[in-house]
Simulated assay, not measured.
Amino acid sequence: MSAPEPAKKPNAAPPVTRPVFLARATYRQRRMRDAAALLPILGALLFALPLLWLGQNGGEARTSHVMIYVFAVWAGLVMLSAVITRILGIGAAPQSASDDAGAADTRRG
Results as ranks from 00 to 15, higher is better:
residue 90 I to C: 03
residue 73 V to Y: 10
residue 34 D to T: 05
residue 86 R to F: 03
residue 75 A to S: 12
residue 16 V to A: 09
residue 53 W to T: 11
residue 85 T to K: 03
residue 85 T to E: 07
residue 76 G to M: 11
residue 35 A to P: 01
residue 22 L to I: 02
residue 57 N to S: 14
residue 12 A to V: 10
residue 87 I to H: 03
residue 37 A to E: 10
residue 55 G to E: 12
residue 96 S to T: 15
residue 42 L to D: 09
residue 103 A to W: 01
residue 30 R to G: 13
residue 28 R to H: 02
residue 24 R to C: 02
residue 13 A to W: 04
residue 34 D to H: 04
residue 44 A to P: 01
residue 63 T to P: 06
residue 37 A to W: 04
residue 4 P to L: 09
residue 32 M to F: 06
residue 98 S to Q: 05
residue 63 T to S: 15
residue 102 G to Q: 08
residue 6 P to R: 09
residue 31 R to K: 14
residue 12 A to T: 08
residue 1 M to Q: 07
residue 73 V to M: 13
residue 88 L to H: 10
residue 40 P to E: 11
residue 42 L to C: 15
residue 101 A to P: 00
residue 95 Q to V: 14
residue 108 R to S: 13
residue 3 A to T: 10
residue 109 G to I: 04
residue 8 K to L: 13
residue 68 I to R: 12
residue 43 G to R: 09
residue 96 S to Q: 01
residue 25 A to N: 09
residue 9 K to C: 11
residue 95 Q to R: 07
residue 92 A to I: 14
residue 10 P to Q: 14
residue 64 S to N: 12
residue 37 A to Y: 06
residue 18 R to G: 03
residue 89 G to H: 00
residue 81 S to T: 10
residue 2 S to Y: 02
residue 93 A to M: 07
residue 50 P to V: 05
residue 17 T to W: 00
residue 72 A to D: 09
residue 80 L to Y: 00
residue 32 M to H: 03
residue 48 A to N: 09
residue 73 V to L: 14
residue 76 G to W: 01
residue 65 H to E: 14
residue 61 A to M: 07
residue 59 G to A: 14
residue 27 Y to R: 05
residue 3 A to I: 06
residue 59 G to D: 11
residue 25 A to D: 13
residue 12 A to D: 12
residue 109 G to E: 05
residue 55 G to F: 06
residue 35 A to D: 13
residue 59 G to E: 14
residue 101 A to D: 07
residue 20 V to S: 05
residue 47 F to R: 08
residue 47 F to A: 12
residue 14 P to C: 02
residue 45 L to E: 13
residue 34 D to Y: 00
residue 36 A to T: 03
residue 51 L to Y: 06
residue 89 G to N: 08
residue 56 Q to F: 02
residue 82 A to W: 03
residue 56 Q to W: 04
residue 29 Q to G: 07
residue 29 Q to Y: 03
residue 54 L to C: 03
residue 76 G to Y: 02
residue 63 T to Q: 15
residue 96 S to N: 15
residue 94 P to M: 06
residue 14 P to N: 06
residue 90 I to L: 14
residue 42 L to R: 04
residue 69 Y to D: 13
residue 83 V to R: 08
residue 43 G to H: 00
residue 85 T to I: 07
residue 102 G to N: 07
residue 39 L to S: 13
residue 14 P to Q: 12
residue 11 N to M: 14
residue 5 E to K: 02
residue 15 P to H: 00
residue 46 L to P: 10
residue 77 L to K: 01
residue 6 P to E: 13
residue 74 W to F: 15
residue 66 V to I: 15
residue 91 G to T: 09
residue 14 P to F: 00
residue 46 L to C: 12
residue 91 G to W: 07
residue 12 A to P: 00
residue 77 L to S: 11
residue 1 M to F: 09
residue 32 M to C: 06
residue 94 P to Q: 05
residue 75 A to E: 09
residue 50 P to D: 08
residue 43 G to P: 00
residue 72 A to K: 02
residue 61 A to D: 05
residue 109 G to D: 01
residue 81 S to E: 14
residue 84 I to D: 06
residue 11 N to I: 08
residue 88 L to N: 05
residue 106 T to G: 03
residue 54 L to Y: 03
